[in-house]
Design a protein around this nucleic acid. Structure first.
Length: 750
DNA sequence: CGCCGTACGGTTTTT
DNA sequence: CCGTACGGCG
């Protein structure tokens, strides 16, 4: 019996249908978490609770992936309840579970156990090479577009051969050619890209009966979270796991599908109903997160989509505060507004910084915010952005480690062979590569051949390598260094290996030579941070530590770097893209840059389907807020050097005026637009009846006032701030001095 | 042959 | 604005 559950919040709160859904889980469990599913953490809690209270047992942990925070938490929670030796539990993202299984079964399926996982930039390097070898006119067909087409094919389990047969136009033919070549290169490099992890795992289960039975027996139940963002291959994998014991539960909300550009396919939901006709669908329309105002506003936005099934969420949480709309002059002023608002809410409402999140469409928008928050001395944590593992110095060191683990990795080889500068340039490398290709060996192996030739008494003239004398010497030294480090890796823990790499390469000196004192220091600290992470793998046996470390680093997700907002000590405002925010929640959310061209993004203007996805993205952002939601925009914004005026986002305008408390720094021409509030919901109108802030100062110095929370006080001063008034009041007792904005503070004259 | 300077182009979202 | 491509110099 399968169970299909759609809509928000399956487990949180455990209402009756949710309880029913979860209690069908009665044995070994495999959880496949979709991208960025912070909600999985809640599920983890609930499962632990069920184990504890309902006594679903006995389970045993076979393997748990550590790459995401939810998995880690799941493990510690569940481990506390479980006996060491009963059933099997596996929790992780699709990618991390596949990586783990492929590594475990590598020998059986003829896969090199020390395969490296190639990320986006590694893929691009390979793609450039693949295009070069296939003589592709990359002016006409962009490598990025070809890679994207290949990635899409893989996500639908379309092989190069099948793709070639289906190619209808010239672009298709080019892609087919490059696809085949690209796959060959991956094999040569002993690498799997992100898509391969899924594809190879599916193939493994399809083609190897022994492996298939093993896992189908092991996992009696399969649960997929964030199902709306899975692709065809991932769904296929889930089905394979659940083929023997068809206990499969998927959780997803079609309105939150925001990864179609990454080949997530909403057809999965339809297919699920077709593939499991006995499945029970449970619609969960009670929301346990947001206030009714927030839900109504979000509903008004998402209702603008044509392609959707209507559902309306409700909550017992009450109306809550109105949504604050604010128009700033430019992005600096916008950021200041956010910083000030946070500061005053922290003061006035005793909020912790960790209760706030600021969300934006693109990573670039975090810049102005960071500056403003630093000025305002507001602690913040940036999620994603220039991600830690994408920093140059970190990638360099990882490049060495990857080459040590897998010398066939030509991408890593090319990255580190001249870092620090050893006098090995493009010319030498291309010569070496050409020579290696003639021999059908990877570049690093070719280097070993060069070394052998050099040490031979009478080198063969015909096979003679084409490398100059000086470069040859350097390259052989490099090759020997890596060989020695491989030896270190086999016998020592991660910290020792990393220190060995740093020492042998003289990387610290290199950093300080290349950069200014302060920047060098900063980058060296990043290496220190990397070393800290690596040290967590010291407990693993030599060799295994390196494999696990590199795998985890490759598969770490933005959500894993999210500050834990359950932890009151963390005390930081979260800055995060709308995409990364999926599955998370915060009491107070600011959505900034709510402008046409940003959200919705300009690149979605000419495509209806993409526009609908932008709308869903907006919906996702709005529904992250539990208590207060701010929709903020700027009249003027600097893009890349030049500034532009963007009209307010169309999504912004979809929010009924009755739900909004409007605040503005500038009187722009847009203020006049669509002012007339269409009465959205009975009983909400009175909110808008709040009188506008008057021109004259309402409070004078010396006046006695009362505030519902702070009690009685005396007005010290009051002044006009933009089109609001700021009143400074000395309250009695411990409360002391407060600065209050008139439009917000319910101040009463005594 | 490699390194460093300047011009230019492209510019969402991420496992 | 940032990273890459190309051209001249050591």
């Amino acid at each position: 019996m399968g169970v299909l559950v759609t809509a928000e919040h399956i487990i949180e709160g455990l209402n009756p249908p949710q309880r029913e859904a979860v209690t069908t889980i009665a044995g070994p469990l495999l959880i496949l978490a979709g991208p960025g599913s912070g909600k999985t953490r809640v599920i983890a809690h609930r499962i632990a609770y069920l184990v504890d209270v309902i006594g679903v047992a006995p389970w045993r942990i076979l393997s748990v992936t550590f790459t995401n925070k939810a998995a880690k938490e799941m493990r510690s929670r569940v481990a506390a309840h479980l006996e060491e030796a009963a059933a099997d539990l596996m929790l992780g993202t699709f990618h991390s579970i596949c990586a783990r299984l492929l590594r475990t079964e590598a020998d059986r399926i003829g896969l090199n156990r020390s395969f490296n996982i190639f990320d986006d930039s590694d893929q691009m390097s390979l793609m450039k090479r693949a295009c070069e070898y296939s003589n592709v006119d990359t002016k006409r067909f962009k490598e990025r577009a070809i890679l994207s087409a290949i990635s899409h094919a893989k996500s639908e389990l379309v092989s190069p051969e099948t793709y070639a047969r289906g190619a209808r136009d010239y672009f298709g033919e080019v892609v087919a050619r490059v696809y085949a070549r690209y796959q060959e290169l991956l094999v040569e490099n002993g690498a799997l890209d992100f898509d391969d992890l899924i594809v190879r795992a599916v193939e493994m289960l399809q083609n190897n009966a022994e492996v298939r039975e093993k896992y189908q027996e092991r996992f009696l139940h399969v649960l997929v979270d964030e199902f709306q963002d899975t692709n065809i291959a991932q769904y296929q994998l889930a089905r394979l796991f659940a083929a023997k014991h068809p206990n499969i539960c998927v959780v997803g909300d079609p309105d939150q599908s925001i990864y179609s550009w990454r080949s997530a396919d909403i057809r999965n939901i339809l297919n699920f109903e077709r593939d499991y006709p006995d499945a029970k669908t449970v619609l969960l329309e009670q929301n346990y997160r947001s206030t009714q105002n927030i839900l109504d506003a979000a509903h008004a936005v998402i209702s603008g989509n044509k392609q959707r099934k209507e559902k309306s969420l409700w909550t017992s949480a009450g109306e809550g505060e109105p949504i604050v709309a604010y128009e700033a002059y430019d992005e600096a002023e916008e950021a200041d507004f956010v910083a000030n608002e946070i500061t005053s809410l922290v003061e006035d409402e005793r909020r912790s910084y960790s209760e706030f999140a600021v969300m934006y469409r693109t990573n670039a928008h975090s810049r102005a915010l960071e500056e403003a928050l630093i000025r305002a001395k507001v602690p913040y944590a940036l999620v994603g952005g220039t991600r830690f593992y994408e920093r140059r110095e970190v990638k360099d060191i990882l490049g060495y480690l990857r080459l040590i683990q897998n010398p066939h990795d030509a991408v890593s080889f090319a990255r580190v062979v001249n870092v620090p500068g050893r006098g090995i340039g493009a010319k030498t490398l291309s010569e070496l590569e050409r020579w290696a290709r003639e021999r059908g060996v990877p570049a690093f192996t070719a280097l070993q051949l060069v070394a052998e030739q050099e040490s031979a008494v009478r080198p063969s003239v015909v096979e003679r390598h084409p490398i100059g004398a000086k470069q040859t010497k350097t390259l052989i030294e490099f090759q020997q260094m890596i060989a020695e480090l491989q030896d270190v890796a086999e016998k020592n823990n991660m910290t020792t290996l990393l220190d060995g790499v740093l020492e042998r390469t003289g990387y610290r000196k290199h950093l300080f030579a290349e950069f200014e004192e302060s920047e060098g220091e900063e980058r060296w600290e990043n290496i220190g941070e990397l070393r800290n992470v690596a040290s967590e793998y010291d407990g693993l046996s030599a060799g295994h530590g390196l494999v696990a470390f590199l795998e985890d680093v490759a598969l770490i997700s933005d959500a894993d770097t999210t500050p834990d907002n359950d932890d009151p000590g963390s005390g930081r405002v979260t800055l995060i893209t709308l995409h990364s925010a999926k599955g998370l929640e915060y009491p107070i959310v600011f959505m900034i840059a709510m402008e046409e061209g940003v959200l919705p993004h300009i690149r979605s203007f000419d495509d209806q389907a993409q526009m609908e996805e932008e709308r869903r993205l907006c919906y996702v952002g709005m529904t992250r807020a539990k208590q207060r939601l701010y929709l903020v925009r700027a009249f003027k914004r600097y893009n890349m050097g030049s500034s532009s005026h963007n009209p307010p986002s169309r999504f912004f305008k979809d929010v009924p005026q009755v739900l909004i408390s409007q605040r503005s720094a500038v009187r722009s021409q847009y203020e006049a637009v669509e002012r007339g509030p269409s009465r959205y919901r009975e009983g909400l109108a009175r909110k808008d009846d709040r009188p506008p802030v008057p021109e004259e100062l309402v409070f004078a110095g010396g006046e006695r006032v009362r505030h519902p929370r702070f009690g009685e006080g005396i007005v010290v001063s009051s002044q006009k701030v933009k089109d609001d008034q700021e009143v400074s009041v000395a309250f009695k007792g411990e409360v002391g001095m407060k600065k209050l904005m008139l439009s917000f503070a319910p101040l009463e004259k005594l």
